[in-house]
């Protein structure tokens, strides 16, 4: 019994994990008639202007036009947040995305999309998002979406200055 304890502990931890296989590109995100939907884009155009600061190992993964996911329409459910939408579209389009989840603060931090990570292009770089042109001051899993919202997920190299998120502007 004593010997089985670690095994049981491991099984217990694994039971709390959800395991999924990566699927191919599917069109599940396309909304059905009458279902709420949003438009999404994922871009890293600012990297193109700062290629000298980019991690040399990452040069090959930057798309030449800086567009990781061209604008598309995605279905949302009641109560979906920006994070849910992003997780959904990246998964269904076969785009890599890593986040760091801290349940104690109910926080989900997007570390990298398509292998482009925060701090890969200078120390002020990272991922930000805007909803209908506004940059919320809270995390992506704290912003609820409604029908017709326009979500843009953008990579910045200057803490938001280069993508129109300017601090202190009313």
């Amino acid at each position: 019994m004593k010997r089985l304890l670690p095994l049981i502990a491991v099984l217990f931890i694994l039971c709390g994990c959800s395991v999924e296989l990566p699927g191919g590109v599917s069109s599940d995100t396309v909304p059905e008639e009458g279902q709420a939907s949003c438009t999404v884009t994922i871009e890293c155009k600012t990297v193109l202007d700062n290629m000298d600061m980019l991690d040399p190992d990452k040069k090959d993964i930057i798309p030449p036009d800086g567009i990781i996911l061209p604008e598309c329409v995605a279905a949302i459910d009641e109560g979906d947040t920006v994070f849910d939408l992003l997780a959904d579209v990246t998964r269904k389009n076969g785009i890599h995305m890593e986040f760091n989840s801290t349940p104690a603060y109910d926080s989900k931090y997007i570390e990298g999309i398509a292998n482009l990570y925060a701090f890969d292009c200078g120390e002020l770089s990272g991922w930000m998002f805007s909803v209908n042109g506004e940059f919320p001051t809270v995390g992506a899993n704290a912003v609820k979406l409604k029908d017709g919202d326009n979500v843009r997920v953008l990579y910045t190299c200057e803490l938001g200055q280069d993508i129109g998120n300017i601090y202190g502007e009313e």
Binding site: C17, S18, V19, P22, A87, H96, F99, N115, Y117
Partner: peptide, 17 residues
């Protein structure tokens, strides 16, 4: 560490590469 281009499977939403 979930970095990497070749995703094998997803555990709790994060990719295993």
């Amino acid at each position: 560490n979930h970095e990497g281009a070749t995703v094998l499977l997803y555990i709790n939403g994060n990719p295993i590469t």
